[in-house]
Design a protein around this nucleic acid. Structure first.
Length: 424
RNA sequence: GGAGGGGUGCCAGAGCGGUUAAUCGGGGCAGACUGUAAAUCUGCUGCCUUCGGGCUACGUAGGUUCGAAUCCUACUCCCUCCA
C-alpha cells in the first residue's frame, strides 16, 4: 500500500511541495484543502486536476476540504492574471457556489465514515471580519517587502494592480489560518500559480500560532501545442451538462492528442499504474485504435456524468462516425442529436423547387452569412444527411428529408445542426 | 499641469491621395493525407448579389479634393516622458 505522496508523484501531478510534506503525508492522517474560484456557475475541465487531488486525499484516508471562495471571489485572485479582473456581484457568486457544490459532490464523499469531505465557503469568516481587526491581527505579520517579492505581485508591477488585488494573498493566508484553527487543516494544495499564496498562509500560521503547515502544488496544464487546457474552438469545456453536453464532453477527451493521452489518464482517472502502463503499450503498438483516448473519455465521462450519459454519448459517437445517417430512423435521430443545436422549420417553406441551402444554413446559425455558406459549399465542407453538397445554389427539397421530418446538416467533420420540419 | 506618440479587419501589425476590401504573419474555418490524432500541404477568412455588380468599412464628427485609411480641424480614448 502506497501513500498519497507517492501516488501523486507517479501520476505526475506533484510539481512542488514544502519541506516535510512527504513525511507528514506518509505518517499521519491529515486534513488538507484546495480553494475553488466561484467566478462561474460551473467548474470546467481545468478544475479536474485539483478535484482529483482531493479525491486521492480521501482515498488514502486523509480529510479533504473544498473551500469555495465566496469571500475571496469578491476580490479576485491576481495570480496568473495579467490584468485586473472585473468584480462579480454577491448574488452572482452565491448562485455560482450552489452550482459548484453540486458538482463537487459527484467526486467527494461527504458522508464517509472517519474522513468525510468538508465543504466550506470562506465568506463565512471573511465577510464578517472588520478592516481594523484584519489589519491589526493579520496585516501586522506581513511586510510590504515580502508581498512585493511574490511572483503574483511582481509580474504585475508594470501593468499595475489595484490595492484590492494586492491584498488577495493576505485573505488566502487568513483562510489557511482559519482552517488550521477550525479543522486542524495543515495542508493546502493548488496549481503551481498558487505557490505564493500558499506559502503566505504557511508563514502566517507559523508566526501567529507557531503551527507547522504544509503546501503542495500541481503543475499547470497545457496542451502540447501550448494552448490553454480545456478550451476548444467552441469554448470552455464545462462539467455542467447544460453548458457542455455529455456528448461533447466525451468527444473532447476522445480527441486528446496521443502525446497527452497517457499523462491525462494519470491525472484524471483512478486507473492503477499497472493498468495505465498496459494502455500505454497498446497506444504505442497500435495508435490507430486510440484505445487510450477511448478509455480516458469513458472513465472521465462516467465520473462526471454517470454511466447512463456515457452510454448515450458512445451511442451518438457510433452513429455519427460509423453508420450512414439515412439508415437511421426518426427516433434514432432524436436520440443521437438530442444535444445538437436544432432549428424548427415549417413545411410550408418547401415549395416545388425547394429551399436554397445557403440561405437555410445561414438562418439556422450554422454559417454566419450566405456568402460564407456559399464559399463553404464550394470548398466541399457542407453536408446534408452526410452527403457532400457541391452545388453552390443547391436547393433542398422535402423528399430528401429523413422520414419527412429531419435534415441533418453538417459542417466539416464534426459540427452538426438538426433541422426539424414541422407539419402545417 | 507641460511635451511627445498613437488609435486600421478576431489578434498582431504594414499602408507614396487614386489599380487598397486594404501587404505579411498569427488565429479561425474548410479540403487532401490519416486514426474523429499529430505533422504536412492547399484553399477560404467584411456584407449582399439574378455573378454583371452593389453596399459598408480604417476611434468620432466635420472639411479640403474629381478622388482620402492616407491631407486639415475639432472632439474622444490610450500610451510614454517631464512636473
Amino acid at each position: 500500500m502506497g501513500n498519497l505522496y507517492n501516488e501523486l508523484q507517479w501520476r505526475g501531478v506533484l510539481h512542488a511541495a514544502t519541506e516535510g510534506t512527504q513525511e507528514v503525508l506518509t505518517n499521519k492522517k491529515v486534513v488538507g484543502y484546495i480553494g475553488f474560484d466561484p467566478s462561474a456557475a460551473s467548474l470546467h475541465v481545468g478544475s479536474l486536476l485539483p478535484i482529483m487531488t482531493l479525491v486521492h486525499m480521501q482515498r488514502y484516508g486523509h480529510t479533504p476540504i473544498a473551500v469555495l471562495g465566496g469571500g475571496t471571489g469578491l476580490i479576485g485572485d491576481p495570480s496568473g492574471k495579467t490584468q485586473e479582473r472585473p468584480l462579480l456581484g454577491k448574488e452572482k457568486i452565491e448562485e455560482n457556489i450552489q452550482g459548484i457544490r453540486k458538482q463537487l459532490s459527484k467526486f467527494l464523499d461527504f458522508e464517509a465514515k472517519g474522513n468525510p469531505a468538508i465543504l466550506v465557503n470562506n465568506a463565512d469568516w471573511l465577510a464578517s471580519i472588520s478592516m481594523l481587526d484584519f489589519l491589526r491581527d493579520i496585516g501586522k505579520h506581513f511586510t510590504v517587502n515580502y508581498m512585493l517579492a511574490k511572483e503574483s505581485v511582481e509580474s504585475r508591477m508594470e501593468a499595475g494592480m489595484s490595492f484590492t488585488e494586492f491584498n488577495y494573498m493576505l485573505l488566502q493566508a487568513y483562510d489557511f489560518l482559519t482552517l488550521y484553527k477550525r479543522y486542524r487543516c495543515v495542508l493546502q494544495m493548488g496549481g503551481s500559480d498558487q505557490w505564493g499564496n500558499i506559502t503566505s498562509g504557511i508563514d502566517l500560521i507559523r508566526r501567529l500560532v507557531k503551527g507547522k503547515a504544509y503546501g503542495l502544488v500541481t503543475p499547470l496544464l497545457q496542451t502540447s501545442s501550448g494552448q490553454k487546457f480545456g478550451k476548444t474552438g467552441s469554448g470552455t469545456v464545462w462539467l455542467d451538462p447544460n453548458l457542455s453536453s455529455p456528448y461533447h464532453f466525451y468527444q473532447f477527451w476522445l480527441n486528446t492528442d496521443d502525446k497527452e493521452a497517457i499523462p491525462y489518464l494519470k491525472y484524471f482517472t483512478l486507473l492503477s499504474e499497472a493498468e495505465i502502463e498496459s494502455v500505454a503499450d497498446s497506444l504505442a503498438m497500435s495508435p490507430e485504435k486510440r484505445e487510450a483516448q477511448k478509455i480516458l473519455a469513458s472513465e472521465i465521462t462516467r465520473m462526471v456524468h454517470g454511466e447512463e450519459e456515457l452510454v448515450k454519448a458512445k451511442q451518438a459517437t457510433a452513429a455519427l462516425f460509423g453508420r450512414e445517417i439515412k439508415d437511421l430512423s426518426a427516433k434514432d435521430i432524436l436520440d443521437v442529436f438530442a444535444d445538437t443545436p436544432s432549428t424548427d422549420l415549417s413545411s410550408s417553406l418547401f415549395t416545388e423547387e425547394g429551399v436554397l441551402l445557403s440561405t437555410l444554413v445561414q438562418e439556422c446559425g450554422l454559417m454566419p452569412s450566405k456568402g460564407a455558406a456559399r464559399r463553404m459549399i464550394k470548398e466541399g465542407g457542407l453536408y446534408v444527411n452526410n452527403r457532400r453538397v457541391t452545388d453552390e445554389y443547391y436547393k433542398l427539397s422535402l423528399d430528401e428529408s429523413i422520414d419527412g421530418q429531419f435534415f441533418v446538416l453538417r459542417k466539416g467533420a464534426k459540427k452538426y445542426h438538426l433541422l426539424r420540419v414541422l407539419p402545417e
